[in-house]
Nucleic acid binder design. Sequence first.
DNA 1: TGAACACATGAAGAGGTCTTCAGATATTCC
DNA 2: GGAATATCTGAAGACCTCTTCATGTGTTCA
Lengths: 119, 119
Amino acid sequence: MGHGVEGRTTPPAQLDAESAATVAATLQALATPSRLRILTRLRHGACPVNELAEAVEMEQSAVSHQLRLLRALGLVTGTRQGRSVVYSLYDTHVAMLLDEAVYHIEHLGLGVTDIDTTA
Amino acid sequence: MGHGVEGRTTPPAQLDAESAATVAATLQALATPSRLRILTRLRHGACPVNELAEAVEMEQSAVSHQLRLLRALGLVTGTRQGRSVVYSLYDTHVAMLLDEAVYHIEHLGLGVTDIDTTA
DNA sequence: TGAACACATGAAGAGGTCTTCAGATATTCC
DNA sequence: GGAATATCTGAAGACCTCTTCATGTGTTCA
């Protein structure tokens, strides 16, 4: 059993400038320790801001700024619940993107060639 | 048939600061239009620098600088062949990471819930 | 309404990133 | 060796990013 692209239609054709910009912009949202930790925390379930701040050890203000960015990119959503605003990942795609990214990156350059472990 | 995480062992547990930094550093390599285009070009096969520069419409010097960075992160390798240096993606993981990233990002926020199109 | 709590936001500064320019290094061919 | 080709590299500047500080907005409760 492999992982990753399987029933995918098109392999990522050569990106035109526009697509590259879009993809890059989104990837940048994952490309910072703070946001990455925020997202992986949310990967485990919705969470209000102050709890989030505590979990990732950042100031509440900093977290808010990052959430704003993530919201703008459509990666998370926040809904008010009483005084709190509860955030969660927007999509299954966001969750998967996170999973895939962490997985592949943690297996990079390890000489692991488990392309086909069953052969 | 789905895509993405399937035979994966661990879902990305809450990242500690160190892992977050590593993953973030690697993701940043994909988080720029120029590098993204370089990588997707290499995704289609090895390529010498000048050809690469032409393909992605950048100055050769700029490409070299980015390749240096990508090399340092273990995402690409370059081997001398005559006067040229031919670059290629380092790993299958790099290729998959690219594929996954582009795929998921291009399906973000589209309301597409094709988690299981076959069911 | 006023106080307390939860979050958002604007401004500003430290630090980093990407490109360009100029020049260095390596390889081939004569 | 010398010229031409292909790539690398350092320096420098424009630009963006992330955090902090201070303050603004929204909500609950008495």
